[in-house]
Structure formats: C-alpha cells, structure tokens
Design a protein around this nucleic acid. Structure first.
Lengths: 143, 143
DNA sequence: AATGCAAATGAGAATAATTTGCATTTATGA
DNA sequence: TCATAAATGCAAATTATTCTCATTTGCATT
C-alpha cells in the first residue's frame, strides 16, 4: 500500500494524482502558496492539475485541517500552507511592507494549554503581526 | 475642535463624514465586519457611503494601522475590525464551524517582548485557531 | 465668512479570484 | 476485471474588490 494511500485513507479520501501532487507541492514549499502558484508548479512538473481542481482539493484539505488557508494582507488572494510544525510567523511593516520572520512560534505552548482547557483537537492556527518597522516609525505621517 | 478632527489630524487625515461613520460603525461593532456590512449599516443610519468609498476608507485605515483586515475562513470576504485592546480571538471548529471565544489574548505579553526585541512599533495582530471541537472530534471522518 | 485647491467621493464599469455545471475519467472495493 | 461513486477538466458564471473620472467636500488662507 503506497505511503500516501495510507495517509489519505485516514481521512477516508481517495488517493488521486491531483491530491498527491498538491500535497507534494505544499510540503516542499517553505512559503505559503496561492492556488495559482500550485497550478503553475504542477504544470512545470508535467502533472498539470486544472485550476478549478486545485481549488477543490485545497478546500477539501482545509475542511480536513490538513491545510491552513490565510489571506496575507494587501493582495486579496488566498494563500495555503501545510498545517504542521515548523511553520513560521511574521511581522509585517504596514508602511514599507517589509516582512520579518519570527524565530519561534509564540503559540506552541499556548496550544497545549488550550487543548487541556477546551478539549478541542487543535490542528493549526494563523497568526500575523502588524506594525511600523524601526525605519518607518520615524518617517511615518503619524504625529 | 471636534473630537474626531483631533483624532484624524494625528494621522494627517481629513475629517470627513464617511471616515467618521466608518469609524463609528467599527467602534460600535463587537464583531468584525465586511465592507458590505459597513456599507449597509451606513445606509440604515441614513448616512450612506458608497461601497467603493467604504473600501477606500478601510484601505486607508488599514494602511495607518487603525484597523485590522482579516479573512475569517470559509467565505472569502475581507473582514475589518478596530485594532485595539479588547479584541477577541477565537477557536473555530473545522467541522461544525462553531466558534469559541478565548478568554484573553495569548499575545498580550508577547507583543511587549517583541517590541523590545525588534524595535517595531506594533499596532495589532490577527490570530485564529483551528481544530475539531469535542463533539466533532469523535464524529469526524478521520480514523 | 468667502475662496481656492487638493483631496475625497459616487456611480458604475472593469478586473481578477473563486465557484459551479456538466460531460468524461479515475480510484477503489467487490 | 468490473461497477459505481467520486474526482476531474473545461468553460461559463459569479462575486469581491479596484479603478476611472466627473463632481463635491474639507480645510487653510485670506
């Protein structure tokens, strides 16, 4: 039984080429991707999945908690990333849009506390922090 | 000098009817609102602001850090809320969509640490936590 | 208080992301 | 291997958001 079939059967999902490829692409990427990014990567890798199918697969993964959907500010495209350890969070400068990655996830501990307190099975989270970077907080229009 | 004029002049912004109304609506609301929600509320209150202007005002407020833009899962409309103390975070059940409000913000402390460490002027953050609620984690399709 | 001007607004057309319908193909369990 | 339900591709439909441009408004300065 192929490794991925086992993985998918945990969720009672068919192990299709498209789902495999999307999972590959998401697991390989170090940054969140848009549906179109994934579509283009599948094409590059000679395993094209139609864009609407990419959307359907992503929706499914989000519904299962395998993937986190978020909308990084400014553009309004949805971004998708694996809901797993090893993810990164960022501080985004509202003014110059510079992005600073945070060393470690401030919620790692908190999630454990929360599991005990709420009895939820927590599968992931989204976090983004905003502000003015040291340069911009000086220049900015605010008094 | 009207109270709001002072507020707006801090950001070198004109004190217009639209901006006042949008701020009123956002400050009054206990939940994040879509641009359309705000448009409809302005209409109800006999101070209609055109939808495109609502979008423009919201973009401006986001750019200044007065408002936080986020995209609560499932639907893909942007949601807007005041970037202020007293905000709430939530755990959303991936399966039944139930929302549980968290008592206190797990980032309150962390933001202070971060200010010192990064010298950013932090104006706000977005946080959403996902998982299966106690009922759904039993029923769920996952093995 | 009146004036000038840059900035803000309204209306609706344009854009672009996402969803949907339906005919065809594919994965899985018997 | 076969039957069947589920997944996919394609193109059209939908919908949130942005943009254009003519008109209006807020505010600094007389």
């Amino acid at each position: 039984m192929p490794e991925r079939t086992k993985f998918f059967s945990h969720w009672k999902l068919k192990n299709t080429q498209g789902r495999n490829k999307v999972l590959d692409i998401l697991e390989t990427s170090t940054i969140p991707l848009t549906a179109e990014d994934i579509y283009l990567k599948s094409k590059e890798q000679n395993a094209e999945i139609s864009l609407s199918t990419v959307y359907r697969i992503l929706d499914l993964f989000v519904a299962k908690g395998i993937v986190i959907k978020s909308n990084i500010s400014s553009n309004n495209k949805a971004m998708f990333e694996i809901a797993k350890e090893g993810h990164k969070h960022h501080i985004v400068c509202i003014h110059c849009k510079k992005v600073l990655a945070l060393e470690n996830c401030p919620l790692k501990c908190y999630e454990k506390t929360l599991k005990n307190k709420t009895h939820y099975d927590i599968t992931g989270h989204k976090l983004e922090i905003f502000g003015y970077c040291p340069e911009c907080k000086v220049l900015t229009d605010r008094k």
